[in-house]
């Protein structure tokens, strides 16, 4: 027992005192947010830096947003140990920071591409490193590169199992990209894992509608509408299902709920307007079309069609009001 404790003590001690004194000082300066001081301390003995010293130096440059210097230091670390996924990951993040904080479009684009490359290399070196997946996914989602995002998510789920946040996103992407069968399966699994996340129910009902499974879609819409009364998306999604199956009364109810949750929801006002118009309440619908227009909807073309429909029916007065709104809502 004593021998074991002494052994552990020696290991700890060796590790604790392994870094040179100036690196300890730099680390303390870093911890106290004295990044310039940390850089100065380390620069004086730059030829004696250990791996830890380089890391503190790179992190200090990062904190003061000198990403070129951070990349230079990480490059030195990487050149000493080129197969190490850690340096590739940090280099990727540094490129991404440089991209995000640059105001020059070309730099933004080039650095983001380099970041993607570095994250991919990170995953090649260590396919089990989850933060690299998250970082890559974030880039693809921001760039709306849905195919890349779906491929990455499938691979991440294969590596780590069905994590909630990944399944939720895959459900959304497959449903919106028209992969209806896989979307239904993924969304059902996502619901099992995240039963309190309303989006999955909306995308499930969407994929069911797209597969002409109207009855099933209606059930999901009713369930999610009841289960998530304070989710604008769930209420709007339920409204969409009922609008598509031409149950305008139910659609009006759910779009109304969505507006109640978020009175500034443009899509809910548009949905409510459509449902009201199609149910014969064109005069009430106009108010919601107008509100949607105020919120940024640009549906002039559609309003002109509605105006024409009203004039054909003989309601010249209301038709003119629709035409007038169409003129302003462009």
């Amino acid at each position: 027992m004593k021998a074991l404790l002494v052994g552990i003590f020696l290991l700890w001690s060796a590790h604790a005192f392994s870094n040179p004194r100036f690196e300890k000082l730099a680390e303390e300066q870093f911890a106290n947010a004295q990044y310039r001081e940390a850089i100065d301390t380390l620069s004086k003995d730059a030829e004696r830096l250990t791996e830890k010293g380089y890391l503190i130096l790179a992190a200090s440059y990062s904190e003061i947003q000198e990403y070129d210097n951070e990349l230079r230091i990480l490059g030195i670390l990487s050149s000493k140990d080129s197969g190490n996924y850690q340096w590739k990951m940090l280099i990727g993040q540094s490129h991404l920071k440089k991209s995000r904080f640059s105001k020059i479009e070309k730099v933004k684009k080039d650095e983001e591409t380099k970041a993607i490359q570095s994250f991919r290399e990170t995953l090649q070196s260590n396919p089990k490193f989850k933060p690299a997946y998250d970082q890559l996914l974030e880039i693809f989602l921001q760039r709306e590169e849905s195919h890349e995002a779906r491929t990455l998510l499938a691979s991440a789920i294969q590596q780590f199992g069905p994590r909630a946040q990944w399944l939720n996103k895959l459900c959304e992407l497959q449903a919106n990209d028209g992969f209806l069968g896989p979307a239904e399966t993924t969304c059902r699994r996502a619901i099992q894992i995240s039963p309190n996340f309303p989006d999955n129910y909306v995308f499930l009902s969407q994929s069911l509608m797209d597969q002409k499974e109207e009855g099933k879609a209606q059930k999901v819409a009713m369930y999610s509408g009841k289960r998530f009364p304070s989710s604008e998306f769930a209420q709007w999604g339920a409204g969409q299902v009922f609008l598509l199956i031409k149950n305008f009364e139910a659609a009006i109810k759910y779009f109304g709920n969505a507006i109640h949750v978020n009175s500034e929801s443009m899509r809910a006002h548009l949905g409510e307007a459509e449902a009201l118009f199609q149910s014969g309440e064109q005069s009430r619908a106009l108010g919601h079309f107008k509100k949607a227009c105020d919120l940024g909807a640009r549906n002039s073309e559609k309003l002109h069609v509605r105006a024409a429909e009203l004039r054909i029916k003989g309601d010249e007065d209301l038709g003119n009001k629709y035409r007038s709104l169409a003129e302003t809502c462009r």
């Binding site: 069905p162 994590r163 909630a164 939720n168 995240s194 309190n196 996340f197 309303p198 998306f233």
Partner: peptide, 18 residues
């Protein structure tokens, strides 16, 4: 087969549309 490994502590079932 990986159904049971489910969510980690950082997995979240809440979102922007909740």
């Amino acid at each position: 087969s990986s159904e049971n490994s489910a969510s980690s502590s950082e997995d979240s079932d809440s979102g922007p549309n909740k």
